[in-house]
């Protein structure tokens, strides 16, 4: 089972575990229809496009409403800590949540005690929490943007808003990403594989860049909320399908760009419009299960 965990911007949505289905502008989970926008829903929609294309079980999601106070985030983590040993996912994806070092520690402890270790992917607030807790090395994949890469390379920062200025300036020149990757790895603030999403996408394993993707070049994608989330969702699903981490990263970095090209992306394009292109892109890339 692939389990995606994160918050959605609907304050009173209760903690919900169920099967996800991408339906264009919205995502359905049990009886709920949730707009497919930036964040956990975009990530889930992209993951669904992969599992649907490969005729695999759809992603299971654990979602909860949270508009920033963290109550939903905390309840989600507490549920996972209690139930992970029963759920036993093959791939565990942690996404938009309020970072919380203590809960991240308890979750990783729960995973260590579990009879099966899942492949672990983190992005967004969960990635911030894992790094701040000193637990990045327990993860298999992080998918930061260049600013977040600077955050991973900063030994002291607990959030990208407080990274050292020279690291932020460095990420303006994306050519510095390999240095940031090496620093983060030395600091034990990086997982096995990093996919740094930017004008050039960098794929790094054990502190070294092993591949880059830069074509097709669609600069508008950076402005569209959720285009990083779609990469994370696709990578997680391809890994669930059995693909190696770095192969999944390369395919998804390329597929995201191709979807932007097919959708003739503009800065006002919505992320769900890109997700609808993924099946066509996978066909063009001749991806087979």
């Amino acid at each position: 089972m692939m389990l995606i965990c994160g918050t959605v911007p609907i304050e009173n949505l209760p903690l919900t575990l169920g099967e996800a289905k991408f339906e264009g502008e919205s995502l359905s989970v049990n009886n709920f229809k949730i707009p497919c926008t930036q964040g956990t829903t975009a990530m889930t929609g992209a993951a669904f496009s992969v599992t649907d294309y490969l005729k695999l079980d759809p992603p299971q999601v654990l979602i909860v409403g949270d508009t920033g106070r963290g109550k939903g985030s905390n309840s989600l983590y507490e549920y996972l800590i209690q139930r992970l040993g029963v759920l036993l996912p093959d791939v565990l994806v942690l996404h938009y949540c309020l970072p919380n070092i203590a809960l991240m520690r308890s979750l990783c402890e729960s995973i260590r005690r579990s009879s099966k270790r899942p492949i672990m992917v983190a992005d967004a607030g969960s990635m911030y929490g894992a790094k701040a807790a000193g637990l990045a090395t327990e993860f298999d994949i992080f998918t930061p943007d260049p600013c977040e890469m600077g955050f991973l390379a900063d030994p002291d920062a607990s959030h990208p808003a407080y990274i050292n200025k020279h690291l932020f300036e460095a990420n303006a020149n994306e050519g510095k990403v390999p240095e940031l990757v090496a620093t983060a790895y030395q600091l034990k603030s990086a997982p096995k594989l990093l996919l740094v999403k930017g004008a050039v996408d960098y794929i790094a394993r054990e502190g070294k860049v092993i591949d880059t993707v830069s074509e097709p070049d669609i600069p508008e994608l950076e402005a569209i909320g959720g285009t990083g989330d779609t990469i994370t969702g696709m990578v997680s699903a391809f890994v669930y399908a059995g693909m190696k981490l770095h192969e999944a990263a390369k395919i998804c970095a390329t597929a995201n760009r191709m979807a932007g090209k097919l959708a003739q992306a503009e800065v006002a394009t919505k992320v769900w419009q890109l997700i609808t292109q993924f099946p066509v892109v996978f066909e063009q890339m001749k991806i087979r299960g």
Binding site: T37, G68, L98, G225
Partner: peptide, 20 residues
């Protein structure tokens, strides 16, 4: 406002909807 991107905290998707 045409789009909002980036971030990782749970209020960002909510704020995006209120701004775009």
């Amino acid at each position: 406002i045409l789009n909002v991107s980036g971030g990782g905290c749970p209020d960002i998707p909510y704020l995006s909807v209120s701004l775009i």
